[in-house]
Design a binder for these strands. Structure first.
Lengths: 335, 335
DNA sequence: CTGAAAGCGCTAACAC
DNA sequence: GTGTTAGCGCTTTCAG
């Protein structure tokens, strides 16, 4: 293993030496410039600027002080849902002087475990996860680390610690019921990459279809979600059920793909086929007819997650540990 | 400041004590299980499992050993371009036992500076940046830290250290020339959120238009990019130039939005209006006609960036420090 | 407002 | 294959 000897970076000691004070004073200055006299403050500022001082978090992590960093674990980096979620988090953390470390786990529990170990190895003060299903070792590590944890997006039956999210089964149920009330009889569920939230939505679909005494039609794939998948799933659905009159999609990408495929096939939306998406992303506003979709408060989930976590880190935990932030149906012209 | 006293996590010493060996042996086991005798190996494995040992990177960072972590700075978390870029990086880093820390800077140099300081404070072994324009302090910090750096996506004139990317001006020039060769006379450039790569594409557009003796038409906005923006920019373009017959878009989202807006307005694509996008994302394959777009090798850029960086970290730098990975035009039906 | 001493948990370097 | 020693650069605690 090659010795990657990093060139020595300036230390607090280096700064102190130049001025003839101790590193302790410099340390105080770094955390709160007001805590040292004006004369020294100016000197430290100048020397630290000149030397290009870069904070070193290693000793801070070693001492028992809080690291003022929280770990955020996202399923994917290419999903607008998690980009607004993260924005919501950062608005809160930035305001309180915390930084975040982002990692992603591709909807895979083993990768989640590895990434959580990684985040904890940096002595983060808390974790925000975006899954509710974890390996045994993940649970053990979190317990051992003893840091507060938010499970965001869903509402687990028994959260590890705290949870902020919405009831995806209820949201799906609600969307599918809207289709049933329209009088639709042959409604399919389009699902991709069968992660847990996709399954929850399918459960909501199942319940609504069962209650109405209709026939379920699951069109599923293990492939990663994409726009082009809409066409593929629609082909399968139509061959299985030529009388198809409604599609509830697990996300907007597939819904948009389905609309585009309908245009191509000459199927009129919504006259011949109704379509509802999930997440109410911007593209649903750009297409004609506009996509009817389930709107989820991901920005607010991010905010609330960060608020709850920071409260817990700073010692005043709220009483409630589960927050259901609900959903709405964004109306469009595809229902 | 509340004292966030973390409960004590197990240390190597704790494990060693239970077995009656020294922490040094445990340390060796953690880095290479084969380096200790089979008997102790089994004991350590058992105790470490039982105690739920979590690695602590603080001391590793303090000692002068390499941290085996690289920092990756992305402009945004909601862009498919950077998701494949990151995948390319991770394929390489995972294979070599490195982890990555991801941060994002919203195309803002000051935020980039703050995030680079953050990444360096964790003693990362190297940095992969996705911008070529940096603040003075950013440059100073990178120099002081003395770690290898890749500037990815573009080809800067004078890289800080190494660069992997493509010539966006040339790509745009090429795309616009294809429109000119088709005989189009009124070609607009649609740009959003005027970051540097958007400007480079505009330069390529300008050169092509100038060379052909045509008239430039810049339709720009400072807004964040979106699908709905396509309609907005198209409205402005048509009111400024009713004879518009071509649009080169700075990205596929805007291009798709423009196509959808054309359908709504009854403008035939490409008969009345040709459209070219940038990045060749999946959605361009789902729409009819399929979107003609500039295809960029972002996955390969990620891979090559990671390879170059790790080579440099491990001491065998390649001779070249700039790699232009080129581009192609993905044919579609919108030209 | 500033200083002195001790220590966080690991690894490098050297012994045996 | 395993142990010993020293030390990384900060913060904590206690003095003054």
């Amino acid at each position: 293993m090659p010795q990657n000897k990093k060139p020595k970076r300036p230390t607090l000691q280096n700064i102190a030496d130049r001025i003839g004070i101790t590193k302790m004073t410099v340390s105080r200055y770094m955390r709160d410039p007001e805590s040292v006299s004006e004369t020294t403050r100016k000197k430290i500022a100048a020397v630290s600027e000149e030397l290009g001082y870069i904070q070193n978090r290693a000793p801070i992590m070693l001492s028992k002080s809080s690291s003022k960093v929280i770990g955020v674990l996202l399923p994917s980096l290419s999903n607008h849902v998690f980009s607004s979620f993260t924005q919501g988090i950062e608005v809160v953390t930035n305001a309180k002087g915390y930084e975040i470390i982002i990692a992603h786990f591709s909807y895979n529990e083993e990768i989640e475990e590895r990434k959580i170990a990684f985040l904890l190895s940096y002595q983060v003060d808390g974790l925000i996860l975006t899954s509710t299903r974890h390996t045994k070792r993940t649970l053990q590590m979190i317990k051992t680390a003893g840091v507060p944890v938010i499970e965001a997006m869903e509402i687990p039956e028994k959260p590890i610690d705290m949870a902020v999210g919405l009831d995806h089964a209820a949201a799906a149920y609600s969307a599918v019921n809207a289709m049933i009330e329209k009088g639709l009889k042959k409604i399919a569920y389009f699902g991709a990459r069968l992660d847990y939230r996709t399954q929850l939505r399918m459960q909501g679909y199942d319940t609504a279809i069962d209650e109405a005494g209709l026939e379920k039609l699951h069109i599923l794939t293990h492939k990663h979600t994409s726009f082009t998948l809409g066409n593929e799933l629609l082909s399968r659905a139509l061959s299985e059920c030529p009388k198809l009159d409604g599609v509830f999609c697990t996300n907007d990408d597939i819904a948009i793909g389905t609309i585009l495929s309908c245009k191509e096939r000459g199927i009129k939306v919504p006259e011949q086929l109704s379509i509802i998406g999930y997440n109410a992303l911007d593209i649903g506003r750009a297409i004609t007819p506009q996509l009817t979709s389930v709107s989820t408060p991901r920005y607010q989930i991010g905010e609330k997650s960060a608020e709850l976590l920071l409260s817990s880190i700073e010692g005043d935990r709220e009483e409630r540990n589960i927050y259901d932030l609900g959903f709405t149906i964004t109306p469009g012209g595809t229902l």
